[in-house]
């Protein structure tokens, strides 16, 4: 049965995630008992490091792979639970602002990536995939776009490898930059949500900075994810006009099909919280469920990052992606800092 096949991998995610949490707590307890100030390394980082170590030394055995691949499912469940920590007003204000930022980000990213793609002589469809991957949602956007624009498997795997490698890099780089710039939790969370590729990496980068930053990173990233259908549809129409992809007949149905449904769950739970449907202990329990679900995700981020596989994909798509990412990181940072007083960040 399907669930039975997934069980070993899900257990592995839970063990690695819990080992990360246990390590953080043990180090803190040791420091306290011995009156020593030890650096506080968050459970998020430990879980990712343990996963990375396994994936890049012994590799994940085949028995565990179907379950490890569920890490994005737990992420989506975690995001729905996280709705409990938002009031609808915040979601509308910050989510709406995020959508505006995403629109600007998209325009700049598409123009820049197209120019870079030409400079580095990448295939136009690979360039489209890199632009979609770096501006919206990383791997899921690339998968959604691949079918719609009729791209090669090879182009899609190049784009995914580049986006994953850059996501892994951002995971460590963003919190360090955020601390160096003295950003507050909300500002950093919004920045990570808008600039870090892949929802799992954006959530992890935010949570590495602080719990509150993780919450706002999810909000901004969720707004970004919601635009996936529109962007993929835009590209599909463009490539159909070039007679290099199939025409999409029912555009409304296409948009609905590509829309990430967990966003609706997140909004619903946030609405329930705003209407006061949860008692304080209930809201705390649901928020904790979200943390546990994210813990499985963070373990999965490490386990699925295979550095050797990324090396095999070659440097050019990675360089194009990296230049684009730096530009997007700078642009989104400027937008967040500029809009901070207006948004009360």
């Amino acid at each position: 049965m399907n669930l039975l096949r997934k069980l070993p991998g899900i257990l592995l995610l839970a063990v690695i995630g819990y080992a990360g949490k246990f390590t953080e707590q043990s180090i803190a307890a040791y420091g306290k008992a011995h009156h020593t100030a030890l650096p506080n390394i968050e459970y998020v980082l430990w879980a990712i490091i343990f996963g990375l170590l396994i994936a890049n030394t012994v590799r994940v055995p085949a028995l565990f792979r179907p379950g490890v691949d569920t890490y994005e499912f737990w992420l989506k469940i975690g995001i729905v639970f996280l709705g409990v920590r938002f009031v609808v007003g915040d979601v509308v204000k910050l989510g709406g602002a995020s959508l505006l930022f995403v629109a600007i980000e998209l325009g700049v990213s598409i123009a820049l990536m197209t120019w870079l793609g030409k400079k580095f002589q990448l295939s136009p469809k690979l360039t489209s995939l890199l632009a979609i991957g770096s501006s919206i949602c990383g791997v899921s956007a690339i998968i959604a776009a691949k079918g719609a624009i009729d791209a090669d498997d090879e182009d899609a795997s190049y784009a995914m490898a580049a986006v994953l490698a850059l996501g892994a890099f951002s995971l460590f780089a963003f919190p360090a930059i955020g601390h160096a710039l003295g950003m507050n939790d909300k500002m950093f969370g919004m920045w990570a949500g808008l600039a870090v590729d892949n929802t799992a990496e954006a959530t992890a980068a935010g949570t590495l900075f602080s719990d509150t930053a993780g919450k706002f990173a999810v909000l901004a990233k969720t707004a970004r994810n919601a635009t996936i259908g529109f962007v993929v549809l835009g590209y599909a129409i463009y490539w159909a006009k070039q007679s290099q992809a199939k025409e999409i007949a029912r555009k409304g149905a296409f948009l609905w099909e590509k829309f990430p449904k967990f966003v609706l769950g997140f909004l619903l739970v946030s609405l329930m919280a705003t209407l006061g449907w949860f008692t304080k202990p209930q809201a705390a329990d649901i928020a904790n469920l979200s943390r546990w679900a994210f813990l499985l995700t963070f373990a999965g981020v490490g386990l699925r990052t295979d550095l050797r596989e990324m090396k095999k994909q070659g440097m050019r798509p990675f360089v194009v992606g990296a230049i684009g990412e730096f530009a997007i990181a700078g642009l989104t940072l400027a937008m967040i800092v500029g809009a901070a007083p207006l948004l009360g960040l």
Partner: peptide, 30 residues
């Protein structure tokens, strides 16, 4: 009709929230 994993994530999360609200789930610490 087969539901996508996306929908399943929403259904499972809402079911768990329902259990919390009904008091059928033990307290979840972090």
């Amino acid at each position: 009709m087969k539901l996508s994993l996306d929908w399943w994530s929403v259904i499972l999360a809402l079911a768990a929230i329902g259990l919390v609200m009904a008091g059928a789930m033990p307290h979840i610490p972090w």
